[in-house]
Structures are given as C-alpha cells and as structure tokens.
C-alpha cells in the first residue's frame, strides 16, 4: 500500500514537472495562461510556442527518459550489475553508430535510423556479454569493457563523421545528446516504438526478479536463463536504441533513476519498473528544462547536463560498490 502511494506521488510530481517545463523557457509563459489554452483561449503566439515547440519537446524528453531508465533497470537485472547503464556500457554508442551511418552515408533512408540504432545497440550489448560475462558481470569488468566499447564504437562514429564532414553540421547537436528543435514528427516516430517497448517491459517483471538470484536457482525455478537473458537484453537495447536515434547519446539516466528508485521502493521489479519509468521521465524533463533556461538564450545539450549530474553520482556508486 505504501508502495502504491509512492508511485502515485511520483506521478503527481511528473505532472507538476510537465507544467513547469511547458511554462519555462526563453519566454516564460505563466501557468494561468497555459490553463487558458486548455479551454482554447489565450494569446496566439504563446499558444504556438507551447504547442509547436515546447510540447513535442517535453513529451520527447519524458518518453526518452522513461525508455532509458527502463532500459537501465532491465540491463541491470540481466547483467546482475547495478552499474549497467546504456550510456556507460556502450549500448548507446552502438545505437549512435548505427544511426549516424544512415544519417551521413545514406540520408535518403532516414526512416531506417531507428532500426539501425536498434541493431547498433544490439551489437554493443552482444560485445559486452562476450567481453565481460563470467557468471554475471563484475562491476569493474563492465566498466572496463564499457570503456573499450565506447572507445571503439565512438572511434568508428568519429571516422564516419570526419569522412562526411560536409554534412556533419546538421547533426552536431544530436551527437552531444540534445532534444532541441524536435517536432511532432520526431515524437510520432518514437511514440509507437516507446509504447511497444515499455509495455513489453512489464512482461519482464517476474523474470527480472528471478534473474537477480543465481543462474542455477533461476533454472531450478523454471526459467530458461539464456533465452530470457537474450530477450530482455534485446528489449533494453531496443529502448535505448530508439531513444538514441531521436536524441543522440544521453548517459546516466539509466543509472541514476533505477538506483534512486531502488532506494525509495526496493528492488522488486513489480514496483521498481513503474517507478523508474515515471522517475526517468521526470528526471530527463527536469534536466532538459534546466538545459534550456540555465544559459538562455543559449540552449545546452541535455546529454551534457546529464553527464555533469550523473558522472559524480556514478563515481559515488562505484566507490560504494567497492567497499562492499
């Protein structure tokens, strides 16, 4: 009951954050006016700012935040490792490589970007298991292989960027992880995939819980461990991949949000997953709003903001993990 209340509160916080994010920006629009729009009244220019510019961006930030947080929570279960974040371990780099290959080399096939981002993410996940798996992934191994995979795939991305430097201007913000200038079209592209992925994640709750036990006991509780691990990893790569395909690499959401959620509501995925979903949306939305207003009129890439917040948090977790 207490846990249901926590989730309810998190939903309220999310809704408040949405209103806050819509109202803040280079032009501040008071909340009262936003309520007016709901009843089809108010200033036309402000209405256009909200509906054409801010709302798609807010919704994309929320969806991407959910996707990344859930991807992190799922990967943490299958890798038996609380530090698994799509950005840190290289899944997002893989997705980025897949996406940038399409965007720069064959831009006429832009609609293939999500697919290739997904495949790139899957490829990176596959590499992690090969490099770091040894009856679970030890925290230090996942960091080391993440460094290697990020360097490798990042290098390939740079190579493609340099060779196609005439086209790089259009995607520069994307490379740093940014949600600015996203439209309803982008939202539509990610919306369907996100809903499918997030719904599928609810079917992983029971198995994610059991995968936290030893593999042998999981087998003896009737789980086909290898198949389940592959399927849940694919789902994690899918969620991270489609997000990366729209907004570029945004790290640490998948690390920070599930971790805080775990502290608040415990490690049972029945509650952890929904809370991460809402928490991820709230967190990235806050970070993006901050990115918009902190140095206005310049907009910072939200990926940079997340790195500044998430980096120290990550080091703290790493240190805490070593002590145990």
């Amino acid at each position: 009951m207490k846990k249901a209340l926590i989730i309810l509160i998190s939903i309220l916080l999310f809704i408040i954050t949405v209103f806050f994010a819509v109202s803040m920006g280079s032009v501040n629009i008071p909340l009262k006016e936003i309520f007016n729009f709901l009843f089809d009244k108010g200033d036309v220019i402000n209405k256009s700012i909200i509906f054409d510019i801010r709302l798609p961006r807010v919704l994309i930030a929320a969806l991407v935040g959910s996707n990344l947080a859930v991807a992190g929570a799922l990967l943490q279960s299958v890798m038996k490792n609380p530090l698994a974040d799509p950005g840190i371990i290289g899944v997002s780099s893989g997705a980025s490589l897949g996406a940038i290959t399409i965007m720069l080399i064959i831009p006429q096939y832009t609609y293939l970007v999500p697919l290739f981002a997904f495949l790139g993410g899957v490829f990176a996940t596959f590499l992690i298991f090969i490099l770091a798996w040894k009856d679970g992934i030890k925290p230090i191994r996942i960091i080391l292989s993440g460094v290697a995979i990020n360097a490798m795939l990042g290098g390939a991305t740079s190579l493609i960027s340099v060779l196609n430097s005439d086209r790089i201007q259009g995607i520069l913000m994307w490379v740093n992880g940014s949600i600015s200038g996203r439209s309803w079209n982008d939202l539509n592209m990610i919306l369907v995939y996100s809903i499918i992925g997030l719904i599928l994640s609810f079917f992983c709750i029971r198995t994610s819980n059991i995968l936290l036990l030893s593999d042998e006991k999981a087998v003896n509780l009737g789980i086909n461990v290898n198949r389940t691990r592959v399927l849940i990893s694919l789902l994690g790569a899918f969620l991270a991949g489609i997000s990366t395909s729209i907004v570029g690499i945004i790290g640490f959401v998948g690390l920070v949000v599930p971790h805080i959620s775990r502290l608040v509501i415990g490690s049972d995925y029945k509650y952890l997953l929904p809370l991460s979903m809402i928490g991820g949306a709230t967190m990235l939305l806050l970070a993006d709003t901050f990115a918009r207003i902190v140095a206005k009129p310049i907009e910072l890439p939200v990926g940079t903001i997340m790195a500044v917040i998430g980096g120290p948090f990550f080091l703290y977790l790493l240190r805490k993990g070593e002590k145990r």
């Binding site: 030893s214 042998e216 003896n220 009737g222």
Partner: peptide, 15 residues
C-alpha cells in the same frame, strides 16, 4: 523439471 525436482544450492545470490 522445477515442478518435480528442487535443489538447495551451496551458494546463493539474492536482492
């Protein structure tokens, strides 16, 4: 198998 055979292992991990 797991409905008819259960095993108590030596080493266990758990949340």
């Amino acid at each position: 198998v797991s409905t008819s055979v259960s095993i108590l292992l030596q080493h266990n991990t758990y949340p």
